[in-house]
Structures are given as C-alpha cells and as structure tokens.
Design a protein around this nucleic acid. Structure first.
Lengths: 346, 346
DNA sequence: TTGTAGGCGTTATCAG
DNA sequence: CTGATAACGCCTACAA
C-alpha cells in the first residue's frame, strides 16, 4: 500500500517539527514578559538596547513570525489591500494588477484579488466578502453603482480606478490629450467620418472616451458615428466589421484594443486593407497591441501607473490623509503605429 | 456607555454609522447567548429551528459578516489560498491566475497573490510572508530549490505548477504529445536541423521541454541545437536572432511564446521571411500569440486548467486528502498556425 | 437545546 | 523601562 503510514488524520502539516513560535515562547526563552517581546519587536526604542537584542536573538532562534490575524484582531489593521477588477480575462487589467501589487509589497502590504465578471452584483458580493479582511479596497473599472461605492467607502478607504465617484478617491487616465492627438493625426490624413465603438454601458471610461471623441470630431469638423459593442473583446470587435464597413466611416476608434484587434482581423479576413481602406485606433495599448500586422495605433492609458497610483493613494488614506482629494489624472498619449494612416484613394 | 461617541480625529471610516456587528450584537438583539448565535450560523441542526430563524433574522438585520481573522485565530483555518507566480509581467501566468482564482472563489476561498520576480530569494520571502495567512500555497513555476519547497510543504499544503517536486503535489503540462506533434509537422515539412532556445536555468519546465525536443529530434533523425536565452521575454528573443540565423537551423522551437515572438520580429525586421526561410514554434499559446503575422505556431499548455487543477487539488488537501499523490498531468497540443511550414528553396 | 467559560496570539493600558 | 492584565471576535468543550 502506501509507504509511510501516518496515524489517522492527526499529524499531517504544521506539526512537522514544532508549531509556529509565539511571543510567549520568545518571552520564556529570553526571560522577559510577553508584552516586552511585543514592544521590543514593534517599537524598538521603547525598550532597553540590552533586552531588545536578547529578544531579537530569541526570535530568530525560534524562527518567529508574527501572526497577522492575531494582530489584526486587536488592532483592526490587516496590512492587506483588496483589488477587484471587472474581468481577469481582460489584459487591460494585468497592468493594473501589476502596478498595485508592486507598490503594495514595496510598502509591506499584501494584495488580495477578486473579479466581478463584469457584473455589478458579483462585484458587490466580492467587495462585501473582502471588506472584513482588508484595510482598504481598490476598485478597477467598477460596475456597481456610485451609491454602493460610497457606502463601502464609508466603512473603509476605497480608491477607484477608471471611474470618478463624487466623494471617493479616484485615479483616471485623462483621455483628452491622447484623443486630440489621435484626431489631429486622422484629420491630417484626410479622414472626414470617424466611427466610435462603445464599450459596456456601465463603463464610466467608455462614456468619457465617447465624449472626448465626439467633442474632438466636432472641433475638427469631422463627422462622428457611434456603434455599440456586445462585449469588449476580440470577438465583440469581429461582430461589428460588417456594420462598420457599411457605415462609410474611413476611420474607427474602438473603446479598447481588444475590440480594435477583433475588428481589424475580421476586416482583413474580408480582404479590406488596413489602413489603406480603413484606419483603426484602439485604446489602452495592452500587451500584444504591437504584435498585429499592421501594429495597432492606440491611445495608451498608463494602466500600470494607475494601479500604482491607486495603491499609493490608498496607503496615504491609511496613514492619516482622510481627504478623498481630487481625482488623480494620468496622461494618455497617442502611440502611432501602422493601423492608422492615409486613405488609399481609387 | 453610549454607542457613538467618537472623539475628534477618530471618525473617518468604519465609524460612519455603526461599527461592524458581532455575534454579541446579534445575541443581544435575538435574546440568546453568543455561543448560540455561533452555532445557529455555523452548524444549523445543532439548534432549534425557532432560535435559528431568530438568529438569522437578527443577522441580516444587523448586516452581519463574520470576522475571518477572529475565526482563523481560533480555528487555524483562514479560507485563503496563496499564489506565487514567477513574474506578473509574464502573460503566461495570467491564465494560471484566472484558473486558480475562479475555482477558489467557487469554493468560497479567497486568493492572495504575490510574485517572485524570477528570484528564488524573493520567492521564499514572499512565501514566508504568506504562510501564516493562508491555508495553503500554490507555487507557479517556482524558482526556489526543491528542499525549500518541501520545507514549506511540511508546514502547510503546497501545490506546485510547472515543476515536479518529490513528495509534493504537482500539476504539470505533459510536453510529450505537443512536442511530438510539432516535430512530426516539422519533419514532414523537410526540416533537418532544429534549434531550441532554453529558458531560465532554474526552470524545471525549460529542462523538460529541451529533453522532449532533443529526444523527439533523435527519434526523427533531426539534428538538434540548443541556445541559451538571457531572459524569457520578447527582448530576449530579439537578442538571439543573429546567432540563430548563423547556426544554419531551419526551424526554431523557443522555450516560450514571448521568445518566439521576439525572435520572429527581429528576423522579419532583418528581411528574413517566416516561415519561408525559418519556421518558428513557441510554447504555451499565450494571449496574443495569434495576433502576429504570420500567427504563431505553438504548443499549447492548458494554463488555466493547470491553475484550476492546482486549486482543486489544494482544496482536496485541505479537506482530508493528505497524500501528495501523483503529479497531475495536463495534455499539451500543437496549435498549427502560420509561423511554421515548408522551407522555400532557392 | 442552550448557557458558561476559556483560549487563540497580539497589542494597549496601566501600574510599578 | 518593564510586568501584569484586559480586550479583539469567534469557537468549542463542558455543564446545565
């Protein structure tokens, strides 16, 4: 049968050698009181150099690790940040996660991750589940209503990415610069009719992008059209190729790169040359946006920076700054690649 | 005692209305003992239907949420899984994260995430930091030594992805099928000399892939060469273009898709046509592998499945199964796209 | 079926 | 500067 037979369910893990040491063990070994151990470890300075060294030695000797739960139970602080993203599948969020994770760990915080699957209800459930365990919550592209967000924010610090909610700290890419660069470029290449593909209806960012595009078009005397996507994915982009083509637009700006890439693939499969017949511009500059042929022109959102900014803002909120402050804006910029350009006439 | 007398700077969050309710509050409201509340909520059946309903009503009334820390402190179980990936930057891990996260939440577990930045030391630190907070640890492409992994596994359940460690539960893609399919395809297209680009030296997966490629080459009478990469990224792939070209190989199999894509980009920039002059095959089938022109032929690893399998295995370990068992193998398969094919002679 | 009492590992308060 | 002691919120023998 099996080679090593443990007796029943008793010894498996955690008892391999000794259970994890507590400050009591250290206290005994160092010959001091547990409370002194706690002080020595956490607020050196409130204790004599001598006993501090004694305690520290005992701690390493016993391979001591604080028990975060026990600490949290008493202090209410968990040194943990929660991050909820709309869709783990969507590469847009990878950089947000990276940014948040790296600044969190750099400040000795831990990140816990959940997703809302693009659903407001799921998102709220996930948030509620996280609440007791985290010191603060970062919501990337929230789908829940502003009131729900404010309710959460009343309990613990909340920072929102890609959306702006009155009374809550926010970090958003400022679409203005990138969009105007893009439209200048399209106008310079003779485009007169631009289609915008919208993202999810609850998406704050999609609304801002459409506003920006529409305004910039008006300003440049370009006609603008709006299309709705079924889902903000490659597949969603594919589905729109036919309609876009029929619309007579010579350039398309898609809510995100995924839509842009799907659209481009479908058009190319139908023999429509990009950018000779149609220029395509995405948003975000996700990983892989430059893998396509032609590489995708896109308006880059500094997502990693947004994640990092959000985590940093959170850390501020957790250390005394209690003003939600103004929304932090991160600049966007046009990344001009091959998928946009001059129309080939004739 | 008044319920709400906050003093000065005290009130910011968490006091906005009421502090989070405890079982004591429920007990008071329902007119029973706290311990009865605990039982009613956790082991319905050990309590009369009447009081159970009473308690449940009070719980929703107060919007009660258990405090996971307090529970964990007593029970030792945290309902949290830790996941450490080698590099958050690397899209390979996105699917692993997705898989693990979704099966974790489906079983009411929470996922906490950390990365090792491809460093054994960082990884061990992250693991140690997580240990007290999690019920189990999933290591995706671990860089630390097997002994360190076993030491961790002695404390709490550990599941390893993309590596096999004696005595520890493992989930690995089985490279055999995918590699033999790839080599059959290359052989059928007349290739006689195949170069393999290796990944990080500590990577178990890289070693297996090289073994598999070498063996399959011998079996098919194809000459095999091995190159070392500086880093398993697009940039790392670019750097090897010159050497690969000089080697006389007509096909390349790269440790991962990133290397393959970088190599392809650099070759194309130098005017070398893929696959007419050189066939390229990657590993993993990451997001974006089909965005390239030609789209990348690659040996798909079911990474999402691996993440899910690992989490599922972990949950088993946490509910009574204490045998590490055999390594779980997930099949790989060749995804034949445009970057590999027949050599254009002349 | 329900109540009582103790403890999980820390930190904070209060004496000494 | 250090020691005793009481929480934090929950769970679980044990007693009623």
């Amino acid at each position: 049968m099996t080679t090593d037979d443990h007796n029943g369910a008793a010894l498996q893990h955690n008892q391999g050698g000794r259970a994890t040491a507590t400050i009591y063990d250290i206290a005994r070994l160092a010959g001091v009181n547990p409370s002194t151990v706690s002080r020595a470890l956490n607020k050196p300075g409130r204790v004599s150099t001598q006993t501090r060294k004694l305690v520290e030695a005992a701690a390493v000797e016993l391979n001591y690790q604080v028990n975060p739960m026990a600490r949290a139970l008493h202090t209410g602080r968990t040194s943990t940040l929660g991050l909820i993203v709309a869709d783990i599948t969507n590469p847009t969020f990878f950089n947000v996660i990276r940014g948040a994770e790296s600044t969190a760990v750099s400040r000795h915080y831990t990140l816990i991750l959940a997703e809302s699957s693009e659903s407001a209800a799921t998102e709220l459930t996930a948030a509620r589940r996280m609440m007791p365990t985290v010191d603060g919550l970062i919501l990337a592209s929230p789908r829940m209503g502003d009131d729900d967000i404010r309710t959460l924010a009343r309990e613990k610090p909340v920072v929102v990415i890609n959306s702006e909610v009155e009374g809550v700290s926010c970090v958003t890419p400022d679409v203005g610069k990138g969009i105007s660069q893009a439209l200048r470029s399209l106008a310079a290449n003779g485009h007169k009719k631009v289609a915008f593909i919208a993202g999810p209806p609850q998406s704050w960012m999609s609304a801002r992008r459409w506003e920006g595009v529409k305004a910039a078009c008006e300003w440049s005397g370009i006609e603008s059209l709006r299309f709705e996507s079924t889902e903000p994915t490659v597949e969603g982009g594919r589905l729109l190729a036919r309609d876009i083509r029929a619309s007579g637009a010579t350039a398309v700006m898609a809510y995100n790169d995924l839509l842009a890439i799907g659209l481009m693939q479908e058009l190319q499969a139908a023999g429509i040359s990009v950018p000779d017949r149609l220029s395509i511009v995405g948003f975000d500059d996700i990983f892989g946006a430059d893998f396509t042929t032609p590489p995708l022109t896109t308006i880059r959102s500094p997502l990693r920076e947004c994640g990092a900014l959000a985590a940093a803002r959170m850390l501020d909120l957790l250390t005394g700054v209690h003003d939600p402050g103004e929304a932090l804006r991160a600049e966007t910029e046009l990344i001009l690649r091959g998928s946009s350009g001059r129309l080939l006439v004739g």
